[in-house]
Nucleic acid binder design. Structure first.
Lengths: 338, 338
DNA sequence: ACCAATAATGAAAACATTTGCAAAACTATT
DNA sequence: AATAGTTTTGCAAATGTTTTCATTATTGGT
């Protein structure tokens, strides 16, 4: 146990070459004779040597890590995004340093700093809303950075994502077009969450363009969970005056709303129209299948991964990002007002 | 742009002290005079200096990262687990290096190696089934390691998790006790997935103890997704001879099964009993609410985090792991055979 | 104002690598 | 067999820190 781990010098000794040659055999194999290389490989295996990236990093060599900071992992949305981002990033030889800030932007700053200490090659953040400190830090260290999930032309950094405002409009227009006038909304808190905020703005503007407005007491704010949405909606529909449509800030909330309605024997979409945003795994196969706006997490994740890697390797910094358009998906939970 | 990033020497110069003092002011602030410290802090801020962990790491100082390798992020189960694990780990000052292997154990080995190159302080893997290479590697480098999700007394490394075999038995017993004799099973592929394998074994043993067996064509294997389970189950119940109960390998599959049944107008639990395993977010509020076995991902994640950190800091290595028992949760999708 | 403690700082070695340059070892050509 | 060219290798410096030990500055007691 006590014998210290093998270093490059130990390997060099064992292979009867100099440390430089061992190093080269790792980094520029074509420069070392095949026979020597074999001897070195054997020594490496025998000693169980593992290269020390930290020691390379010190020479300005890329460490091969990308920092990813998310509000939380435990949301269907982010899980899908993280998966595709990390997978795509791994395919390109990088590894992810992951942390979550729980929707607290100061935490985000602290985490970003820490990741910079680790000398990540690049950073990825969710959304466009970040503290000035965070933006300042990233810019000052000029760390290649990409903003995920949201896209805006006047974003301060390259971003690949969808247009959440448009997503809101899309769904708002759809519901209005179906003839609904009594509309409720179930959304997550919008502070520190520009995605939710923009979606809601989109919905509101859409309704406003038809002279409609969401009544104060029909504007439900719930945390991101089936159960929270379910209980809020259950309470809502106990009142005699009911909305004919409930627009939910995302699919999970919509699922909760549907469950609440089913429990109360209110049928969807005959009595109430329900819509989500996101088109998560499962929404298509829900019964009834959910009308929603697709925000293609998978596409966003992999495009973002490609962008950040491009930013890192040729630092020319090609792209200013990409807009992955949201798409209205009409399924069975929305119908004309009866 | 071109000016290189500030290093500790630049800071030292700017603060008119030696590099050693700067270093000390970071690592042992009590050893440096308050006035000097203030001067240094000012310089740090002015230059935008960020410490280089890589350079510390080569001094054998802990880097503060823990490698976490999961099959995939994009499953409700793992998302919850990752969230609680990473959160708990962050609270203790560590950061996670995350990667997914997509259920390919060779990938897992490669990833583990890479994380070791980064000199992670510890590793966390999902499940007990790993290649000999992986186990060998971790043991040989004697990296503190914890196995998540599954617990077994004779596991080769400390593990904190539930007893998936028992979970299977629990649900099997429950279904049998309700009088069911015609039982189908919907499970993910069991190769490279000891969790699924053990659950299925538990179910089979439970049935076998009553002389029951799952018919070959009632043993459905589907990938982890609502839609796959839904379509498999939809096909299953088209046949005239139907099971009276369908035991699903996890809650997501159960959701799919319920949707399939609802679509076909088969009511749950009156006509068919459905059970899941996992008790994911949402199962409680599903309509009808899902009978399942709770595997407390949150508890597992945070206990595992504490264990690995303990293993890392006092290398004495206290614990051999912990069993977090599974618990049968009877809700509305299971009922007596009619 | 001086001495001994004690506190604060600096110099230099150490850490595990990479790399530019020069030396050594081969090849091919004559 | 000698020369020129090419391929391989080793030496030594460099990377950004930490740490041990020695040195200098400060303080309190007389």
């Amino acid at each position: 146990m006590k014998e210290k781990k093998a270093d490059i010098i130990a390997v060099a000794k064992a292979a009867r070459v100099s440390p430089s040659t061992v190093s080269r055999s790792f980094n520029h194999p074509e420069l070392v004779k095949a026979a020597t290389r074999k001897r070195i490989d054997a020594a490496v295996r025998r000693l169980g040597y593992i290269r020390n990236r930290a020691a390379q990093t010190i020479h300005g060599i890329r460490g091969g890590t990308i920092g990813l900071i998310v509000p939380t992992v435990d949301h269907a949305i982010f899980a899908e995004l993280i998966q595709s981002f990390s997978q795509s990033v791994e395919e390109q030889g990088f590894t992810i340093l992951l942390a979550s800030h729980g929707y607290r932007l100061e935490r985000e700053y602290a985490i970003a700093r820490k990741m910079l200490e680790h000398r990540v090659d690049g950073m990825a953040l969710i959304g466009l809303e970040h503290s000035d400190d965070t933006y300042g830090l990233l810019r000052q260290q000029n760390t290649p950075t990409v903003l995920l999930w949201n896209h805006s032309d006047d974003a301060p950094m390259p971003c690949v994502g969808s247009d959440n405002y448009l997503a809101g409009r899309l769904i708002g227009d759809h519901v209005v077009r179906l003839g609904h006038r009594s509309i409720a909304a179930v959304f997550p808190p919008t502070s520190g969450n520009d995605r939710a905020f923009q979606r809601l703005s989109g919905v509101e503007d859409s309704l406003a363009s038809q002279g409609l407005k969401i009544a104060e007491d029909w504007r439900l704010e719930t945390p991101y969970s089936v159960s929270a949405a379910k209980s809020k909606v259950a309470r809502l529909i106990r009142f005699p005056r009911r909305p004919t449509a409930i627009i939910c800030g995302n699919d999970v909330l919509a699922w909760g709303a549907i469950h609440a309605l089913r429990r109360s024997g209110v049928s969807v979409p005959e009595h109430v129209t329900i819509t989500g945003i996101g088109d998560f795994h499962g929404s298509k196969d829900f019964e009834p299948s959910l009308t929603t706006v697709r925000i293609p997490a998978h596409t966003i994740g992999s495009k973002a991964a490609k962008l950040i890697v491009a930013l890192i390797v040729r630092e020319s910094a090609s792209g200013s990002g990409e807009l992955v358009p949201p798409e209205l998906i009409v399924r069975s939970t929305s119908g004309p007002v009866r």
